[in-house]
């Protein structure tokens, strides 16, 4: 592997084998990953998109929970880096045949992949699998726990547009309770010195969320005051059944982002969404498609660059560890 420069290519602590969450990353590691990701943005904009730092390495996408965008983003990141990418989704895996999660991991491990990218519907499942394999593991979302690459791509998007994270006021709105995106973003933005507000109906705010160092609001007008960035979260439709909310109509009325509610934020405030969107539930189409205010398309583009950075950094650590073994 031939890194561009030492500072950029070795952002992670040398003993870090996996990327399981943002919570235990240092500020320096996050900044390093963002710098590295920055350098990969142009790779995707060239006609020749191959940047084969991971040629000959095997990447396995192991998705226990359906996801089009995260899975294809990791796939593209891996392929642009020249790695062999294998996609495994739950539909074709033997979990359906009664094999346990750990058996699946051990079986995959025997195929000697270099990096395993895992998404699972249960919090902690990715960490559990990481303990059973030799390769590097990237958490692509586990239950309501963490989704670290989403937080990295969000930070990259914000930093490119506004030049910094420090000192910004950033609102995260909607279903905080079930959101891994919210948790990873709270950790990352706090570490980089932003002021984070979480806004949502009280039934979708987890107990003790205030202890995570955020301002907690149940009213959009108050919560959005002075915010530079408004991050909307996807509302899972099944939450209606669990008596978290009365109806999508009422939810949109109080928490859906439309032009009026956006006007409570700082003039010119930017809008983000991790996708996929429920138009008319948490976000109005006019806002989502607004060319100057919406960063939603840019987030998707930054996703590939951020994931390339994570893959390169972990592959570097893994090779150093194998050499020193």
């Amino acid at each position: 592997m031939t890194p561009e420069s030492p500072r950029q290519a070795f952002p992670l602590a040398p003993d870090r084998q996996h990327l399981l969450g943002i919570e235990d990353l240092s500020r320096e590691e996050i900044l390093g990953l963002l710098d590295l990701a920055e350098s990969y943005v142009d790779v995707g904009r060239q006609t020749e998109k191959q940047h084969p730092l991971l040629r000959g390495r095997t990447l396995v996408n192991l998705f226990f929970e359906a996801s089009t965008r995260t899975q294809s983003s990791f796939e593209l990141a891996g392929k642009r880096l020249g790695a062999d990418v294998l996609n495994m989704s739950i539909a074709m895996s033997s979990i359906r045949k009664g094999e346990t999660l750990i058996d699946t991991a051990v079986t995959l491990n025997a195929m000697r992949p270099d990096i395993l990218i895992i998404r699972h519907q249960d919090s902690g499942a990715v960490a559990l699998l990481a303990r059973k394999v030799d390769c590097s593991v990237v958490n692509a979302g586990d239950g309501a726990h963490e989704h670290p690459t989403q937080a990295l791509l969000d930070a990259l998007t914000i930093r490119r547009r506004l030049g910094r994270i420090e000192g910004l006021r950033i609102a995260i709105c909607g279903d905080i309770l079930h959101s891994r995106v919210a948790r990873s973003n709270i950790y990352l933005l706090n570490k980089l010195g932003a002021h984070v507000h979480v806004i949502g109906p009280a039934t979708l705010l987890p107990t003790g969320i205030d202890k995570l160092g955020v301002g907690v609001f149940t009213d959009m007008r108050e919560g959005l005051k002075g915010c530079d960035i408004v991050m909307m979260l996807r509302l899972q439709m099944e939450r209606m059944a669990g008596a978290f909310l009365p109806s999508t109509r009422e939810y949109f009325h109080y928490y859906g982002l439309d032009a009026k509610k956006l006007s409570y934020a700082k003039p010119g405030a930017l809008v983000m969404h991790p996708g996929p969107m429920n138009r008319g539930v948490e976000i109005d189409s006019a806002i989502a498609d607004h060319t100057e205010r919406s960063l939603i398309q840019e987030q998707v583009e930054m996703g590939v660059a951020a994931r390339m950075a994570v893959l390169v950094a972990l592959a570097h650590n893994r090779e150093t560890m194998l050499r020193n073994r």
Binding site: S123, H145, P206, K211
Partner: peptide, 15 residues
């Protein structure tokens, strides 16, 4: 147990 720890771990809390 419901609380900060459950919130950090992303697990449902029993108050």
């Amino acid at each position: 147990n419901a609380g900060e720890m459950a919130t950090r771990l992303g697990l449902s809390g029993l108050p």
